[in-house]
Computed example of a mutant assay.
Amino acid sequence: MPKLTKRLVDSMPPEPKERIHWDDDLKGFGVRVYPTGRKVYVVQFRANGRTRRKNLGQHEVLTTEEARRDAKLVQADVARGADPSADRKARLRSPTVAELGERFLTDYAALHCKPQTQYDYRHLVEKVINPILGQIKVTEINFEDVTHFHLKRKDTPYQANRGLSVLSKMMNLAEDWGLRDKGTNPTKRIKKYHEVEKKRYLSEDEQERLGNSLGDLLQSGHISQHVFAAFYLLLLTGCRLGEIQKLKWDYVTQTHLELPDSKTGRRRIPLPREARMLLDNLERREGNPHVILGVHPDGYHQSLQKNWRKIRKHAGLPDVRIHDLRHTYASVAVMNGIDPFMLKEILGHKNLSTTLRYAHLSDDAVQKAAGRIAGKLFKTLERI
C-alpha cells in the first residue's frame, strides 16, 4: 500500500469484512475500512511486550495528514515509555468523584472517624462536592475544576473550605488506592477563604435572661424538665452538645461525668454540686439508659436544636448558638482567674491554642483591665 492520502482513502471501497490498509510511509499508521463504508484512522504500536492499536479518529472528521501527525505523537509517547491504549482503558475504568466520595465514606471515614465526623463528611460530599464535581472522572479532575468548585462556593466560605479539605483527603486516598498518579492532588495551592471567627458568648445580663426564659418555659410547659436540665448542664459543665444530649446514667458518678468516648477520646468531666442536684431531680425511664429523655420510650432527646430556637427567641438572644454556651463557660472561667492549662483539661481540648480561642474576655473586663494598667502608669508618671 502506498502512502495514504485523502484521495486514496476516499477511493477505498467497503468489503464484506473490515480491513486495515497500512501506510508504507509511516510504519504502524493505517485506516480501518468497515463493511458499512465507515473509515477510521488507527495507529499500531508495541507496549509492555504486547501489540496494541489505538483509534485516532474518523476519516473526513480528521484529515489524513492530521491523523498522520497524531500517529507520530502516539509513537513518540510510546518511545518515552507510555501506553496510550492502557491509559485510555484506565480512564474508562476510572470512578467518578461521586463514586470516590462513597468509597471514601465507607472504606475510610466509617473505619477511622467518629460518628459526628462521618455525618459531617457525608453532608460535605453529597451536598457540597457532588453537585459541582460529582460527574467528573477521578483521573480527569484537575486544578481548574477544583478552582471552579471553590469559586462557586465563595458565598459560603466555611463550606467552601471544609469541602476543599475533604476533597483533598479524597484525592490523597485516590493516589493511595492507585486511582491517580502519585503527587497529582489537584487541590494543592488553592488558597482558602478567610473565615470570620464567631466570638459570641453571653454577658451576665444575657445569662440572667436565659435563666429566666428557661424557668418561664419550664413552668408554662413549653419545654420539658429534661430540656431544661440539658441547657443548664451545658452551661454548668462547658460540655459539647452531643456529650450532654447522649449522656447515659452509667457515665454519671457523684463527682464526675466519665465519658468513654468523645470528640477528643475518653473524658473525665468535673461535675459541680449544682449540676449534680439537677441530675438527682431528673426523672428516669425504666429500660432507657439515657439522661436527657425525649418523647420516645427509647433513646435520648432528638430535638434540642428546635427547643433552643424557642428558648433563645423567648430570651431575646436570636444570634446565640448552643455552642456559644461552651464559649460562655470558657470566658467566665478566664475572667475568674482559672488557669488556661486547667481550663484546657476541663474542656477536653488537645492543645492550648484551641482553649484560648474559646476563652473570649468581655469588653467590660478588658476595659477595666486597661484602666487599671493606665492608672498605675499615670501615677508613676506623676511622681517623675
Rank of each mutant, 00 (worst) to 15 (best):
C113I: 00
K114T: 12
K114R: 11
P115L: 06
Q116F: 12
Q116I: 02
Q116N: 10
T117L: 02
Y119K: 14
Y119V: 00
Y119C: 10
Y119P: 11
R122G: 06
L124D: 01
L124C: 02
V125S: 03
V125A: 02
E126K: 11
K127N: 12
I129R: 04
I129A: 01
N130S: 11
N130I: 08
N130E: 05
I136L: 13
K137R: 07
K137Q: 09
K137S: 14
V138C: 09
V138M: 05
T139N: 12
E140C: 10
N142H: 04
F143W: 15
T147M: 02
L151Q: 14
L151C: 12
K152V: 01
R153S: 04
K154D: 05
K154Y: 08
K154A: 10
K154S: 10
D155E: 10
T156E: 00
T156F: 13
P157Q: 11
Y158C: 00
Q159R: 13
Q159F: 15
A160K: 07
R162K: 13
G163Q: 05
L164T: 10
S165F: 11
V166K: 02
S168N: 02
K169I: 13
K169Q: 14
N172K: 14
N172H: 14
E175A: 09
D176V: 14
D176R: 15
W177A: 07
G178R: 02
G178M: 07
R180N: 03
G183H: 02
N185E: 09
N185C: 09
N185W: 05
T187E: 08
T187S: 07
K188D: 13
R189L: 12
K191V: 12
K191M: 06
K192W: 01
K192D: 00
Y193W: 07
Y193D: 03
E195P: 05
V196F: 05
E197Y: 12
K199A: 09
Y201Q: 03
L202Y: 08
S203I: 03
D205C: 12
Q207E: 10
E208K: 15
E208T: 15
E208A: 15
R209D: 06
R209S: 14
L210P: 13
N212R: 15
N212F: 08
S213K: 00
S213G: 10
L214R: 04
G215N: 15
D216W: 08
L217I: 02
L218F: 07
L218I: 08
G221L: 00
G221N: 11
I223W: 03
Q225C: 09
H226S: 04
V227F: 11
A230P: 08
F231C: 01
F231E: 00
Y232T: 00
Y232E: 03
L233I: 01
L234Q: 11
L235K: 12
L236P: 04
L236V: 00
T237G: 09
L241R: 15
G242P: 04
E243I: 03
E243N: 08
E243S: 03
L247Y: 06
K248D: 07
K248Q: 14
D250A: 12
D250W: 01
Y251S: 12
T253K: 01
